[in-house]
Amino acid sequence: MTCKDARYELPDFVRRKPADESAVTVAAHLEQCTSCRSELEQFRSLLMDLETVKPPSLSHSVDWASVLPRVHERIEKQRSFILPEWVQRFALPLAAAIAVALFVIKVIPLSTSDSFADLQATLQQLAPEELQDVAQQQSIAEIVEPASQDEQAITSDADTAVLKNILTDENNRSSVADLDHETLLQSLDEQEASDLVSMLEQASMN
């Protein structure tokens, strides 16, 4: 037995309440360990002194007969505040569903807006010549052509027409060259910008 193990047994050893047969082992250790014997004497003195505070100074008398009625009173009081069981059962799944819905509505659009901002940043870095090359691609016209009636709401007809003219008109190259990139980009919605980048990639590969 180590000194550490022996010392953890000392309080019980002093009070003659060994947890098990370890008392014999502790006694054997004490016979050969002066340090632990010294610790034992200190504990003996302290534990004897602690008897004076046992039981702790408790001056208040307790009305035991009143406990049970007060317990029932509290049960009744709390019962009126407890939600019906079906509400308790569905409260957590409902809260989780609301949290997921909020996440989908708020967080995911934010992340796509971020990617749209990235696209805008990429396009702003293009030189006017590169934009001109893109404009020569006939297919670019399809980009600005609304795919369906529903999507017309995304970009106003007037904006679409202006952009289409700028990008497809062979005679308007100077306009493209002088084009303010920010104005151009602001005219594009997310899908249009994404398609424009694809076009740029294709153009660079060709």
Partner: peptide, 28 residues
């Protein structure tokens, strides 16, 4: 068990009022 519960609580929290309150909460 009310007395035992009371004395456990009383020894831990110290005051009668707190222990008395805990006894009721325990049984609720």
């Amino acid at each position: 068990y009310q007395e035992k519960v009371y004395w456990i609580a009383r020894r831990v929290v110290g005051s009668h009022d707190d222990a008395d309150d805990i006894v009721q909460d325990v049984f609720v």
